[in-house]
Each structure stands twice: as C-alpha cells, then as structure tokens.
Design a protein around this nucleic acid. Structure first.
Lengths: 166, 166
DNA sequence: TTGACTCATTTCCGATTCGGAAAAATGATC
DNA sequence: GATCATTTTTCCGAATCGGAAATGAGTCAA
C-alpha cells in the first residue's frame, strides 16, 4: 500500500501521452517509447489511476457544445470577510471554481451558466446580495484552449481555425 | 465524415458517462443505457471525438505531481495575436488552464509550478519571451475553496462528474 | 559471495473490445 | 409507394486488455 507515489520519467512520459489522448493504447505508447514492454505501460497506467495521480475523462467543450456559458469572476470582498464570503459562494452549484488570490482582498471564481442571461442574473441577483461583496469583475470565456492540463478542441494542433463551426 | 453539431439525448448520456470515466468501454456504456447496441455507442463516440465536441484525456493532479504553487494569470496580448500566443502557451505542461476572455485582448491562464521560484522564473523566462505578449498580471492562489464543482483543497478525489449537469 | 526476500517487469493467454464492411432499419422527399 | 440518404445493427478478424505465473533487478543479512 504505497501512499506516496513517486513519479519517474516513464510515468511522466505516459502522462504526457495520455493528456494528449486518453484513448491511446498501451501498445501504442509502448511503441513510441520503445524501451518498455506494453504490459509495463498498462501496469503503470493502472498505478497512476489507482494513486489518483491522473483521471482519464471526457472533457466537453462548452463552446463546441453551444451551451454552458462560462464567466470568470474576480470578486473583491471587504477586508476580513473573505472566508465568510467564500463559504457562501461555494454553496452555489453554478460556481465551479473558487479560490482566494493574492494581490488584493479578492476571490477568483468560475461561473457556469446555461446562457448569458443566466450568467447575468446570477451575478446580479445572487452575488450582488451577498454581504461583504464589494465589487465584481467579470469576463466571459470566449474560447477554451486548455482545461485540466489537456488541450481542448480549440487547439487541434494543425487544424485550429480551419474547422470552425458557424 | 458527418458533422453532427446537434446533440441528442444519447450523445449527452454518453458524454456523461465518459466524463466520469474516459476509459469506459462501449459495451459497458451500451449495457448501462440498455436500448442501444454497443456498436452504435462506438459510432457516437467516434463522432463526438471527430466533431471535437469532447476530448478524452488524462487529467493530472497538480498537487500529486508536485506542483504545489498555483498562479492565476491574465496575459494581455497584442491585438490579433491571441491565437498565436495561445498555441505556444498550451505547449507548456505548467499551464493547466488557458482561455480567451472578453473585456480586452487577453488570455486567462493557470500556472502550476513546483514552488514560488519556479512560478517566477516561468513567468519571467518563458512567458516573457513569447512574441505578442504585452503584459502579464499574476495572482498567487492562496487557498482553493472549490475545484471542478467540488469543495476540496486538491484535485485528488474530486468527482469530475459533478462538474456540469444537464 | 550466497541465499532469501521484495518489487517491478515481462511473458503467456483467454476474454473483451475495437474498427471495417455490409446488411437492415429509419426517415425524408417526391 | 418508390427512392435515396443516413443511422443503426450484425458479423468478424485483429488489436487490446487484465490475471497469473515466470523472470529480472535490487537489497539485506549471514
């Protein structure tokens, strides 16, 4: 029962390949690396997954899906009330990301809304009424290039602007 | 070579399952849904991937990987060079999140570094020499309240499925 | 050095999963 | 109803996977 998993170069290489394409077969990875057997690759992947170093999952592109408006927020809070505000914000399902950042008394957050109206009303009606919120800065996410360390559809490598939908 | 940009319920179900576990077999998904053949599931997955509605990739856990310091960046780029800069930025493993945002010609990014020195040198030496980068605003993440829709301090154990619903 | 032990890697192999091709089903159009 | 286009399904050989046992590498004590 190894608790602390120490990554070696092989693990890093495997992670590198899998972040690009989570469906790569062990045989394919083994072939690219060249010095390790296919079975070992499979062992390592299983180990990485079990140790929760990585999670292999489908990452939907909100823009490509035509739904889910994402808004990045910088929420200035009154000094000393950050924790209190954070606790309230974390309650909302719409808030997918929330962190305290340096620089000023503020929280950084990501808001996921169904559409722009939803985003707007959330900001106005929900955030606006929270005690301690001094100021809200918002920026709509226009295009996602990379999430969770994985490049999204926006960066296909070669064809990035060629296959753009209307 | 069909371009399907309109998702139906089946697509959404498949995406739902794959979001939780990108390695689920088509047979498994077919079994859970119950009404569609295994081959159709495979067809749909192939279609979703080809249409780039989803990307299946390994999501590394920054903390588990030894990247303890997270920095949020707002990178102002010279007008018209955003895509170009984004492509270069996405190459870095240290960049875990990258998006184009509204408000000004800028990219929003998350930088994962081993320590503060690593973050600083990355910003200075790597970002600083990318053509088209006009200005960099950075904020160290002091505390993580919520990631992927789940209240945790680290990625480990985060339930990705809860990130988005419906 | 030798033997015992541990752990990672590899080999082997049956079961599962995959993708290609063609047949069947569905649906839209006239 | 007939026809064409698209999707779903069936069929099947090849690739992929995970379990089990064998091999290899490294450590430690005598």
């Amino acid at each position: 029962m190894t608790q602390r998993y120490i990554l070696d170069d092989l693990d890093r290489q495997i992670i590198g390949y899998l972040t690009e394409d989570g469906r790569l077969s062990a045989a394919e990875i083994s072939g690219r690396i060249g010095t390790v057997s296919e079975r070992t690759i499979r062992n390592r992947i299983a180990g990485l997954l079990q140790a929760k170093m990585i999670v292999i999952g489908a990452i939907p592109d909100p823009v490509a899906l035509g739904r889910d408006v994402q808004v990045e927020l910088i929420i200035d809070v009154e000094p000393g009330r950050r924790e209190e505000v954070a606790i309230q914000l974390a309650e909302y399902d719409e808030i997918g990301y929330l962190a305290a950042i340096s620089g000023r008394s503020a929280l950084s957050a990501s808001l996921f809304a169904e559409d722009h109206n939803g985003a707007l009303s959330f900001i106005e009606e929900e955030l606006g009424r929270i005690e301690g919120v001094a100021r809200i800065e918002s920026a709509v996410v226009l295009r996602l290039y990379k999430v969770f360390g994985t490049r999204t559809t926006a960066l296909g490598g070669a064809d990035l602007a060629s296959k753009k939908k209307g």
